[in-house]
Simulated assay, not measured.
Amino acid sequence: MSIPLRQYGADDRAPDGRTPRRCRVLWDRGAASPAEGRRAASGFLSELQKSGHAALPDRVVGDVRLVVSELVTNALRHAPGACALQVDLSRDGRAVRVAVQDPSSRAPRIQPPDARRIGGHGLELVRAVSRSVTVRPSPYGKQVTAEIALSQPTDTDAAPG
């Protein structure tokens, strides 16, 4: 049974009352869906922009959707059972955080590069588009969190070479 609980209630808003703080989706065993996770993340990003946050580049929206897809897919493939997705704005307001919790205590591992391998590239992709990826144990398994920067450094931000 799927229990998509999208919570955009008052308790999920920042102190200004307008800005959404987070979107959560919880799934019963075997009911998780990467597509539903992408929809929830897109809804959160849309609400964020409606609340007056600066327009998000298409790259950021695409990267968030990619990270949600990969992390939910990994949870389904490697840790079947109930899982949860949370999408929120980082504390510094400069990144979107995507966190997926699943019942397995085994940390994911990046496989060595192999262009001939089919599959097994999800975590590589997540790391490539994220400013950070962390894995931490939880009482119910683990949580994998990726932060996707809202803007890329410009050439003027780069260190002189």
Rank of each mutant, 00 (worst) to 15 (best):
S2H: 06
P4I: 02
L5Y: 11
Y8M: 14
G9W: 07
D11S: 14
D11C: 03
D16W: 13
D16K: 08
D16G: 09
T19G: 05
R22Y: 02
V25M: 05
W27Q: 05
W27L: 07
D28M: 10
A31C: 09
A35E: 08
E36W: 04
G37R: 01
A40K: 03
S42G: 14
G43D: 11
L45W: 02
L45S: 06
K50V: 08
G52M: 11
L56M: 13
D58C: 06
D58W: 03
V60W: 03
V64D: 04
V68N: 02
L76R: 13
H78L: 11
H78C: 13
P80M: 12
L85P: 02
L89V: 11
L89C: 05
R91M: 07
G93T: 07
R94T: 13
R94F: 07
A95M: 02
V96W: 04
V96H: 03
R97S: 12
A99F: 07
V100T: 01
D102Y: 01
D102W: 03
Q111H: 00
R116Y: 01
R116M: 04
I118Q: 13
I118H: 04
G119D: 01
H121S: 15
H121T: 07
L125A: 15
A128I: 00
V129I: 05
V129G: 04
R131V: 05
S132P: 01
P139G: 14
K142E: 00
T145A: 13
A146R: 02
A146M: 12
A149E: 08
L150S: 02
L150M: 08
L150A: 11
Q152S: 15
T154V: 06
T156I: 10
A158I: 09
P160H: 13
G161L: 08
